[in-house]
Computed example of a mutant assay.
Amino acid sequence: MKRLGRLLTEDPEVLDEDRIERECRTEGAQRAKDCRRGDEAVMVGELRAVQTCARSAKTGVVAEFFDGSDTVLLKWLGRSRIPGIEPGRKITVRGRVATADGMKVVYNPYYELHSDQE
């Protein structure tokens, strides 16, 4: 009964954050909020937004990665598109954490796309 009450009264975004964080912990990955600048991190989460930048000097793909604890920008430089990198996709990323404009960023991360059934 507690769960039903929570589902009816809790903010849907908070419920989504809880679900994502629970799923990511079961993978044994690091939480984004625990990662610091300079850390080599392995994180599991979902892509919330993906943007391609095809302007002359700023080519690349930028994705907003969220694991239920924090948001990290993933930036693939020199790419105009990456198949499978799309909003809502579950992904494992590995790379060195940097910061830019107050946000955590991983440049050119290694990534593994999870199947839609996971």
Rank of each mutant, 00 (worst) to 15 (best):
R3M: 10
G5K: 13
G5P: 00
R6D: 13
L7E: 14
L8M: 14
L8F: 08
T9L: 13
T9N: 03
D11P: 07
P12G: 06
E13K: 12
V14Y: 09
L15Y: 02
D18F: 04
R19C: 01
I20A: 03
I20K: 09
C24Q: 09
R25L: 15
T26G: 00
A32Q: 09
D34S: 13
R36L: 13
R37S: 08
R37I: 12
E40A: 12
E40R: 15
V42L: 12
V42K: 15
V44L: 05
G45S: 06
G45Y: 03
E46Y: 07
R48L: 15
V50K: 05
Q51K: 15
T52R: 15
C53F: 13
C53S: 14
A54V: 13
K58A: 05
T59D: 01
T59F: 12
G60R: 04
G60C: 02
V61Y: 04
V62W: 04
A63M: 08
E64Y: 01
E64W: 07
E64Q: 15
F66T: 01
D67V: 07
S69E: 07
D70R: 14
D70Q: 11
V72S: 03
W76V: 03
W76D: 05
W76K: 08
L77T: 07
G78P: 01
R79Y: 10
R81C: 10
R81L: 05
P83N: 07
G84M: 02
G84W: 03
G84T: 00
I85R: 03
I85K: 04
P87R: 01
R89Y: 02
K90T: 01
T92A: 12
T92M: 14
R94Y: 06
R94N: 08
G95I: 02
V97F: 06
V97L: 12
A98I: 00
A98P: 00
T99R: 11
T99S: 09
A100G: 00
K104I: 01
K104N: 08
V106H: 02
V106L: 08
Y107H: 09
N108K: 05
Y111E: 01
Y111T: 09
L113F: 03
H114M: 06
Q117R: 13
